[in-house]
Computed example of a mutant assay.
Amino acid sequence: MREKGYSEIHVGQCLALAATAGILQARAQLDSKATSFISVDCGLPGKTSYVDDKTKISYAADDGFTDGGSFHNISAEYFAPALSARYYNVRSFPDGARNCYTLRSLVAGHKYLIRATFMYGNYDGLSKLPIFDVYIGVNFWMMVNITDPAGSTLLEAIVVVPDDFVQVCLVNTGTGTPFISGLDLRPLKKKLYPQATETQGLSLFGRWKFGPTSNTEIIR
């Protein structure tokens, strides 16, 4: 069954991806006081964190979620007053075919929304727009095709996790170095999106705004 606006991805029990060669994993635990909300600013140096002035969302550095790659700032020409701070930097993965983020302290059998964001911003100074694949565990999620260095790409999926962790993996397909700007996870009530089950998930196809009279108006 397919919900309008979404296409299916199959996310069965194989989401509980075991450690295999070529997969970089982290076993970081969230702070015991943390909620089930996970908001990661990928490429933020060290073990720092901050609260976004506009959204009031607290973002953590990705140091405890992956042990591969290197962090970079986007080129100065792509900084803009309206640009969210989480796009100022990225983590790229020039080494290894597959590199993963591990999101932990989840509830097995619970439904979650996973969001990944990407903005190239010519962070490497090469002006070469990459194409790479993103997986949830061993299941293909989406191909990321960067066509504009100043544009942002957003992926969303709704999955039922079979274990107390889930991995989001970037896979090098030989067409550019994978990178990521941000990663979020939000718990959902079980009654929402009934098409998302233990054997299949939902992947965002598109989102449209109905009602705003201004292109700058945002509905949250």
Score class of each variant (00 low, 15 high):
12 G>Y: 02
21 A>M: 04
2 R>N: 07
180 I>D: 03
155 L>P: 06
174 G>E: 06
115 R>I: 15
214 S>T: 08
73 N>T: 09
145 N>S: 13
17 L>Y: 06
38 I>K: 05
58 S>I: 02
105 S>H: 02
95 D>F: 01
116 A>F: 03
175 T>S: 12
220 R>H: 15
114 I>F: 01
117 T>R: 09
18 A>K: 08
71 F>T: 14
99 N>D: 10
27 R>K: 03
100 C>V: 08
110 H>A: 09
210 F>E: 14
29 Q>R: 09
98 R>D: 08
129 L>G: 00
204 L>Q: 00
181 S>R: 04
75 S>H: 13
168 V>M: 02
36 S>P: 00
213 T>S: 12
9 I>N: 03
143 M>D: 14
144 V>C: 05
104 R>K: 08
34 A>R: 09
202 L>G: 08
67 D>Y: 00
121 G>V: 04
77 E>A: 11
124 D>A: 09
24 L>R: 01
128 K>M: 10
143 M>V: 13
124 D>P: 05
13 Q>S: 14
138 V>Q: 08
175 T>E: 10
56 K>Y: 07
197 T>Q: 03
24 L>T: 03
180 I>W: 05
147 T>I: 12
88 Y>I: 02
155 L>G: 13
23 I>G: 01
132 F>E: 01
34 A>L: 03
157 A>E: 05
141 W>P: 04
153 T>S: 09
122 N>T: 11
9 I>M: 12
53 D>Y: 11
70 S>N: 10
74 I>Y: 11
87 Y>M: 10
160 V>Q: 01
167 Q>N: 08
139 N>E: 15
129 L>I: 01
69 G>C: 12
116 A>L: 00
186 R>Y: 15
25 Q>T: 08
184 D>W: 06
62 D>G: 09
47 K>W: 03
37 F>D: 14
100 C>E: 05
194 P>L: 15
197 T>P: 08
165 F>Y: 13
175 T>H: 11
167 Q>K: 10
150 A>P: 05
194 P>E: 13
220 R>E: 15
38 I>C: 05
165 F>K: 04
168 V>Q: 01
183 L>H: 06
177 T>P: 10
137 G>Y: 10
30 L>F: 00
11 V>S: 15
22 G>W: 03
92 S>K: 12
154 L>H: 12
114 I>N: 02
74 I>V: 13
68 G>A: 13
168 V>W: 02
83 L>E: 07
158 I>R: 11
86 R>V: 15
117 T>A: 06
178 P>D: 15
14 C>R: 14
42 C>Y: 04
75 S>G: 11
122 N>L: 06
160 V>F: 09
84 S>L: 08
23 I>V: 03
220 R>I: 15
46 G>I: 06
94 P>A: 13
212 P>H: 12
198 E>P: 00
45 P>G: 04
52 D>G: 11
177 T>D: 09
99 N>G: 00
115 R>N: 07
219 I>G: 10
155 L>R: 09
129 L>T: 00
137 G>A: 07
62 D>V: 04
211 G>V: 02
163 D>C: 11
43 G>K: 03
176 G>S: 06
47 K>N: 13
50 Y>K: 04
203 S>M: 10
121 G>P: 07
5 G>Q: 14
35 T>F: 01
59 Y>R: 13
5 G>R: 08
72 H>R: 12
143 M>R: 14
10 H>I: 03
99 N>R: 05
